[in-house]
């Protein structure tokens, strides 16, 4: 079984995703877990790129790692970290706090640079890529109803988030 470079890169990114996901589940501190969750999502985005889906990889980075994780950060800031599980976290704010996520992110960066500069990988990827044009044609053709339902879902999510997060002591009904 010979490993082409693209398959080797996929295994490395998959390993990083698995390790980061395990770290997400096992950390005590919410912010540390969130850092590892970002790494996990970016590693999965690298997997998407190597599978020939660069559009999905971009969406993963922009929407998941960009928007949803920022929502988590806002929520954690609102909750106030002192009362949570941070009393179990190590109290020293040294290198150990960010060493793991930074190492994994550097490995991913090295993978990115290697993939961009490697001619064989680029040729192999360009032969199998499914670009955003095909996705768009399909999205607004046979899947039009699903897009409408997704818009309803987002609207209901917006209304529900506004309703639940509203302060009940000021103008609430209870």
């Amino acid at each position: 079984m010979n490993f082409s470079p693209i398959v080797t890169m996929f295994y490395l990114a998959a390993l990083i995703a698995i390790v980061a996901s395990i770290k997400v589940v096992t950390r005590k501190n919410t912010v540390h877990a969130l850092l590892y969750l970002v790494i996990s999502l970016i590693a999965v985005a690298v997997c998407f790129y190597l599978m020939g889906a660069p559009f999905a990889a971009g969406l993963e980075v922009i929407v998941y790692a960009g928007a949803i994780l920022v929502l988590f950060v806002f929520a954690i800031m609102l909750f106030g970290l002192r009362e949570d599980e941070t009393q179990y976290a190590p109290s020293h704010h040294g290198i150990s706090m960010w060493f793991g996520p930074v190492t994994l992110a550097l490995v991913l960066l090295a993978q990115l640079l290697y993939t961009i500069n490697h001619q064989g990988i680029q040729q192999q990827l360009s032969a199998t890529v499914i670009d955003s044009k095909q996705v768009g044609i399909l999205l607004y053709g046979p899947y039009l109803l699903a897009v409408e339902i997704a818009s309803f879902l987002l609207l209901s999510g917006l209304i529900a988030a506004y309703h639940f997060a509203k302060d009940v002591t000021h103008g609430g009904q209870q």
């Binding site: 969406l59 929407v63 998941y64 988590f72 996705v135 879902l153 209901s156």
Partner: peptide, 26 residues
């Protein structure tokens, strides 16, 4: 391209779920 279409729908679901979930947590 159907797989990527389904992924985008999952992305929408995840965004709505996180918004409602975090509001409930607040």
């Amino acid at each position: 391209a159907d797989g990527q279409v389904m992924f985008m729908l999952i992305l929408t679901l995840a965004a709505a779920e996180v918004a409602v979930g975090l509001a409930l947590l607040i």
